[in-house]
């Protein structure tokens, strides 16, 4: 069942060309849906239209199958976590969490109980009487989460909630959010530009670019079967290598214009080494080498462009001329419209 449906949404500011044009999207009930895309792709705008903070220029937002066109943000049974948390700076942590409950006319006893429970859950009990200015970034983030959870909303909207945290805290809260989603079983809609966040947390990922949905899929499908070059280049770290079809030395079908392969599918071999007949071999020069402990990442300069290669073995390659070998069956084939045609489409 769909929790949220966007029907032919168009959003334009003033007389400018629309940021989003005729967007259709179904968000499944109970899913952790991530709206992913580069900055300026319209993902936050979509979220804000679901929240009711922005009006749609055209089209309709449905929650539980009912249009919310005339429903105020406070009446949509949603909670939102903002990028900068938007805590009320003049109120204590307790008042911040309680503010929405008071407005929802929750009785005093229940408010108390809920705040105590939520404070325990996010580990804020001893900070309840502090003002946000006296909290660390991570604590503020938890207040923002607590303020959302305590309302027991049907939908959580999160607008890049981790981007103001340091890297270590970010990975920690990432797993916390997955746990939270498992526990609450409600719908999460999460906006981010970070594909690692999207891949690690989402059950569904909606990849947006220039206000258009590029692909709406599960993380593993998005990784394994990118529907176009944009998706292939956006997902993965480092992302998929995309080269002109000439790199395959004419082995692929005529209509293939670009080829792609994941860095971990490629293999580095010595300058004078050889590879099997089922592999495409590209000559190049190692220009950067990153030792990451469990793997080594190489960056090669080739006549067709730069290539990243991940090596999990013990083979230690230095700088200088080498070759890259890629199995043909792992090579993604894109046509002139940059759409994926399939993998390893060899000439007859």
């Amino acid at each position: 069942m769909d929790k949220i449906t966007l029907k032919g949404i168009t959003k334009a500011y003033g007389k400018n060309p629309p940021v989003i044009e005729n967007l259709n999207l179904d968000i499944k009930d109970g899913s952790f849906t991530v709206l992913l895309g580069p900055s300026g792709c319209g993902k936050s705008t979509v979220l804000r239209m679901i929240a009711g903070l922005e009006k749609t220029t055209e089209g309709d937002v449905l929650i539980d199958g009912v249009s919310v066109r005339d429903v105020e943000p406070g009446d949509r049974n949603i909670a939102m976590v903002f990028q900068n948390y938007a805590l009320y700076p003049t109120m204590t942590v307790r008042d911040n969490i309680e503010f929405g409950l008071k407005n929802m006319k929750v009785p005093k006893e229940e408010r108390k109980a809920r705040i105590a429970e939520i404070a325990e859950m996010v580990g804020l009990t001893e900070y309840l009487d502090r003002k946000p200015a006296n909290l660390s970034g991570g604590q503020r983030q938890r207040v923002a989460l607590a303020r959302a959870i305590v309302k027991k909303p049907a939908v959580f909207l999160m607008d890049e909630p981790l981007s103001n945290l340091d890297a270590k805290l970010r990975t920690q809260i990432r797993t916390d959010l997955i746990e939270l989603h498992q526990k609450l079983k409600t719908t999460f809609v999460y906006v981010t530009h970070d594909q690692i966040e999207a891949m690690s947390m989402g059950t569904d990922i909606v990849l947006l670019d220039h206000g258009k949905i590029q692909q709406h899929d599960s993380p593993d499908q998005l990784y394994a079967n990118p529907s176009n070059v944009f998706t292939a280049r956006f997902i993965g770290s480092p992302p998929m290598n995309i080269l002109p079809a000439e790199a395959a030395a004419g082995r692929l079908e005529e209509n293939i214009v670009k080829i792609g392969f994941r860095p971990e599918k490629a293999e580095l071999i010595a300058e004078n080494g050889t590879a099997g007949p089922d592999k495409i071999v590209i000559e190049g020069e190692v220009v950067a080498r990153e030792m990451l402990g469990d793997q080594i990442q190489y960056k090669l300069r080739t006549p067709y462009g730069n290539i990243s290669v991940k090596d999990f073995g013990d083979s230690q390659f230095g700088y200088g001329p080498h070759k890259v070998a890629v199995p043909v069956r792992d090579t993604a084939c894109f046509d002139a419209q940059e759409k994926l045609r399939g993998f390893g489409l060899e000439k007859e």
Partner: peptide, 14 residues
């Protein structure tokens, strides 16, 4: 900051 009023709107604040 305007986002405080947005947070307030989501908190059903008159």
């Amino acid at each position: 900051p305007g986002y405080l009023y947005e947070a307030a709107a989501l908190d059903k604040t008159p």
